[in-house]
Nucleic acid binder design. Structure first.
Lengths: 204, 204
DNA sequence: TCTATACATTGACTTTGGGTAAGAAATTAT
DNA sequence: ATAATTTCTTACCCAAAGTCAATGTATAGA
C-alpha cells in the first residue's frame, strides 16, 4: 500500500462491487442500480481517524466495505471501547439520526477503512424509489435489536475470561487487528488483567 | 387485593384506559378506537407466573399496563437476570416473532402484572388499518435499539457498585419491588456481593 | 537504521467479588 | 398467630481484577 495505490481507482472498484450486490438481488434494472449507487458515496479513512466524535450529530448511515471501526466512550479521561465494527456491518445512530441528538461516543478507525455512506435525505429517496430496500432495512433493524439484546445478556452472564474465550471463538480476526489495550476495555478489564487472562489460558 | 377484587372489572377498566390513550392521539374516530381495541387482549399474571419460557416461540407483542416482568437466562442451573420491564415498557422478541426462532430466555412476573397483548396477525391488521401506528412502532423500534446500545455501553463501562448506584438513581422503584438476589444477578454479582456493596455504600 | 514512542508483560500489593456456611430477618402458607 | 420457607446478611478464605511501577517488545517516524 504505497506509491502505486490509487485512491480513486480503489473507490471505483468499490462502487462496482456495490453494483454487483444490487444486481444479485435481481429486482433492479441497470438504470435502477446506477441511480441507487448515485445516492451513495464512498469514504476512506486512515488508521486513527475519526468518523464521529462525542457531541456531534450523525446525519448518515455507514456500512463497512473493508477495515475496522471502533466505538468508544470517553469516561473521565479513559477510553471505554464498546464495539468493533468490521466488514459487512453497518453503523448508524438511530436516535441521533432521527431526533438530531448528539452522540455520546466516538467512532475511530482501527486500520485503513473503506465505508459506503448514505445521507438521511438520500436514504429517504432511495426507500421511496425502492420500497424493497425499506423493508429489508426494517428487518435488519429488528435483527440488530435482537443482536444487542443478546449481547447485553451475554455480557451480564459471563466473566471477562469467558468473554475473551467467546471473542476467540466468534471473532478471532479481531485479535490480530486490534491492539490489546482496546480489546481489554471492550472486555471490561484493564490491559494488565487481559495479559494475565491470556497467560492463565495458555497454562491450561 | 382479596375478595372484592374482580378480574373482569379490572380488565374492563384497563381497556378503557387504552381507549383514552388512543383518543389522545386524536386521529381516530370512536369506531376506529373500538375496532383497534378489539384487536388487543388484556392478560393478567400472578407473581412468579411465566409469560414465556426458553424454547418457546413468541407470536405476540406485550405492553406492561402495571406490574413488573423479569427477563432471565438459565445458565447451568443459575438464573441470570438481564432485564426488568415495568409500566409502559413493551416486550417483544424481534427475531422470534418474525423468524419463528425459539427464544433462549424466560419472562417471569415479579409481581401481579397486567399486560396488553396483541398477536402478530392482529398487529399486521392494525398497521394496515392505521398506518400511523406502524410508523410509531418503527420509531419505537429505533428508540429501543438505541436504548440497548446505551445499556450495553453502560454495562461495559461500569463496575457492579456503579451499576447499583445507577439503579438507585434511574430506577429506584425497582429496589422496593424486586428481591435482592434478582437485582444482584441483574448487576452481574452474587446476592452476597450485593449485600456487601450496599454495606460499603452505607459506610460512606 | 536508529530513536522515540506506544504497547505488552510482569511483579508486589490492594481491593473487590466468589464460594461456603451459618444465622438473622422477612415472607408466605397453614 | 405460628411454622415453614425464602431471602438477606455476615464471616471466613480464596481467586480474580485493579493499581502502580518497572521492564521488555514492537512500531512508526525521522
Amino acid at each position: 500500500m504505497a506509491k502505486q495505490f490509487s485512491e480513486t481507482a480503489h473507490i471505483d472498484s468499490v462502487k462496482n462491487g456495490i453494483k454487483k450486490c444490487f444486481a444479485e438481488l435481481d429486482t433492479f434494472t441497470n438504470e435502477d442500480i446506477d441511480a441507487a449507487v448515485e445516492l451513495i458515496t464512498i469514504k476512506t479513512l486512515k488508521k486513527g481517524e475519526h468518523l464521529l466524535r462525542e457531541g456531534e450529530v450523525s446525519a448518515k448511515s455507514y456500512s463497512i466495505v473493508s477495515g475496522c471501526v471502533r466505538q468508544y466512550y470517553l469516561v473521565n479521561g479513559e477510553e471505554k471501547t464498546t464495539f468493533f465494527y468490521t466488514e459487512g456491518q453497518s453503523i448508524f445512530s438511530p436516535n441521533s439520526n432521527t431526533e438530531r441528538i448528539p452522540v455520546k461516543y466516538y467512532l475511530s478507525c482501527v486500520e485503513y477503512t473503506t465505508l459506503s455512506v448514505i445521507s438521511l435525505e438520500n436514504q429517504k429517496e432511495m426507500y421511496s424509489r425502492f420500497p424493497v430496500l425499506e423493508s429489508m432495512s426494517r428487518l435488519s433493524l429488528q435483527e440488530e435489536l435482537h443482536n444487542y439484546q443478546e449481547m447485553l445478556a451475554t455480557y451480564i452472564t459471563t466473566s471477562p475470561e469467558e468473554r475473551y474465550l467467546n471473542l476467540l471463538k466468534f471473532r478471532p480476526e479481531l485479535l490480530n487487528r486490534v491492539p490489546q489495550y482496546q480489546l481489554a476495555s471492550y472486555l471490561g478489564v484493564t490491559p494488565e488483567s487481559l495479559s494475565r487472562i491470556r497467560k492463565r489460558i495458555l497454562l491450561k
